[in-house]
């Protein structure tokens, strides 16, 4: 049986998290290829529907990475995301998605190792959960 390779979208903020992702790269900290990184200016701009779109388009997991509270370039965009994203999570749950498929983490600009860790852990989590049921049940 072919090993399940999850498709994961990572929505990361342009400032801290993207810098950390690059830092992970330059420090040769490897993380799985399953992650498709999409750079947003701020986690605050992540509309709930982007997450829903991601899942409906066949993503097995969605990771949201932003600056630590207080470090946000736009003052508090991340705090708003911090309220919004869990809300989306609750909605997803009601539709039968496992809550662990959506993850929000704060990652600082220096935190290359943390970035690697979260990515690797998230892929493992999704692997354990298996493919998203969307693929079977929806005609895309």
């Amino acid at each position: 049986m072919e090993q399940f390779e999850p498709k994961i979208i990572a929505l990361v903020c342009n400032w801290c998290t993207y810098t950390a992702a690059d830092l992970a790269g330059t420090s040769r900290l490897q993380y799985p290829a399953n992650i498709r990184m999409i750079r947003m200016m701020c986690t605050g701009m992540i509309d709930s529907k982007y997450i829903l779109k991601a899942f409906l388009s066949g993503a097995d997991g969605v990771f949201v990475g932003g600056c630590h509270p207080g470090d946000c370039h736009y003052i508090d965009g991340n705090l708003k995301a911090g309220k919004r994203i869990p809300g989306v999570g609750k909605i997803l749950e009601q539709f039968g998605f496992e809550p662990d498929r959506l993850k929000l983490k704060w990652i600082g600009a220096s935190e290359g190792p943390e970035f690697q860790k979260y990515m690797t852990e998230f892929v493992d989590t999704i692997k354990t959960l298996g493919p998203s049921q969307v693929r079977d049940r929806m005609i895309l």
Binding site: I38, M40, C42, M45, S48, H73, G77, K80
Partner: peptide
């Protein structure tokens, strides 16, 4: 920052270069 666009319940506000269709 785009927070307004994300919070708007009607999608009446959009952020230039980061409109919904693009993202």
């Amino acid at each position: 920052c785009g927070t307004c666009a994300a919070e708007c319940p009607n999608n009446a506000t959009v952020l230039g270069e980061y409109e919904d269709h693009g993202v």
